[in-house]
Simulated assay, not measured.
Amino acid sequence: MNLNISLAPLLALIAGILVLLVPKLLNYIVAIYLIVIGVMGLLGIGSIHLR
């Protein structure tokens, strides 16, 4: 059984859960998420799949 999980949706899920648990972290989580997605896009590694 193969399980394909994209990195961006996984990060979005983790960020969403953290925002629900600790709303004060929203600014930091959004900033870190945007930086990570931007760096991944620039380096062309946006399509990494975990198996």
Rank of each mutant, 00 (worst) to 15 (best):
residue 3 L to E: 09
residue 36 V to M: 05
residue 16 G to I: 01
residue 35 I to E: 04
residue 18 L to G: 07
residue 34 L to Q: 09
residue 45 I to S: 04
residue 46 G to I: 09
residue 20 L to I: 02
residue 15 A to N: 09
residue 24 K to D: 13
residue 23 P to R: 15
residue 40 M to A: 15
residue 3 L to N: 06
residue 25 L to M: 07
residue 38 G to I: 06
residue 30 V to N: 03
residue 23 P to S: 11
residue 37 I to P: 00
residue 33 Y to T: 09
residue 4 N to R: 15
residue 35 I to R: 06
residue 6 S to N: 14
residue 29 I to R: 11
residue 43 L to E: 03
residue 1 M to D: 11
residue 40 M to V: 01
residue 17 I to A: 11
residue 40 M to R: 15
residue 45 I to C: 07
residue 37 I to A: 13
residue 31 A to V: 05
residue 22 V to L: 09
residue 50 L to S: 03
residue 2 N to A: 09
residue 39 V to R: 04
residue 50 L to T: 07
residue 29 I to S: 05
residue 45 I to N: 03
residue 14 I to D: 02
residue 27 N to P: 08
residue 5 I to Q: 06
residue 47 S to L: 01
residue 16 G to Q: 15
residue 39 V to W: 06
residue 32 I to A: 13
residue 38 G to D: 03
residue 24 K to G: 03
residue 30 V to P: 03
residue 26 L to C: 04
residue 51 R to K: 14
residue 8 A to S: 10
residue 24 K to F: 04
residue 41 G to D: 00
residue 34 L to E: 09
residue 11 L to P: 00
residue 44 G to Y: 09
residue 48 I to G: 00
residue 28 Y to C: 04
residue 17 I to W: 13
residue 48 I to V: 06
residue 22 V to D: 15
residue 49 H to L: 12
residue 44 G to M: 12
residue 48 I to L: 10
residue 15 A to M: 01
residue 14 I to P: 01
residue 48 I to N: 01
residue 14 I to L: 02
residue 4 N to D: 13
residue 24 K to L: 14
residue 4 N to A: 08
residue 46 G to M: 10
residue 40 M to C: 07
residue 16 G to N: 10
residue 39 V to N: 01
residue 26 L to K: 14
residue 9 P to N: 02
residue 8 A to H: 13
residue 21 L to Y: 10
residue 11 L to M: 04
residue 49 H to V: 11
residue 22 V to H: 07
residue 2 N to Q: 06
residue 48 I to Y: 03
residue 2 N to T: 13
residue 26 L to V: 13
residue 7 L to C: 05
residue 35 I to N: 01
residue 14 I to V: 14
residue 20 L to R: 15
residue 43 L to C: 01
residue 3 L to G: 07
residue 20 L to Y: 04
residue 32 I to V: 15
residue 51 R to V: 00
residue 34 L to P: 01
residue 1 M to G: 12
residue 37 I to F: 05
residue 45 I to P: 02
residue 28 Y to T: 14
residue 28 Y to A: 13
residue 31 A to P: 03
residue 18 L to C: 10
residue 29 I to M: 05
residue 51 R to T: 05
residue 35 I to G: 04
residue 11 L to S: 03
residue 28 Y to N: 12
residue 40 M to G: 09
residue 30 V to G: 06
residue 9 P to Q: 01
residue 34 L to R: 14
residue 32 I to S: 13
residue 11 L to E: 04
residue 50 L to D: 01
residue 35 I to P: 00
residue 15 A to E: 09
residue 1 M to E: 13
residue 34 L to Y: 02
residue 21 L to V: 12
residue 1 M to Y: 05
residue 14 I to W: 03
residue 12 A to Q: 15
residue 9 P to E: 02
residue 42 L to S: 12
residue 19 V to S: 01
residue 10 L to V: 07
residue 17 I to S: 06
residue 41 G to H: 03
residue 17 I to T: 15
residue 30 V to M: 10
residue 35 I to V: 07
residue 34 L to V: 06
residue 31 A to T: 10
residue 32 I to E: 11
residue 27 N to H: 10
residue 18 L to A: 12
residue 28 Y to L: 13
residue 44 G to H: 09
residue 16 G to D: 04
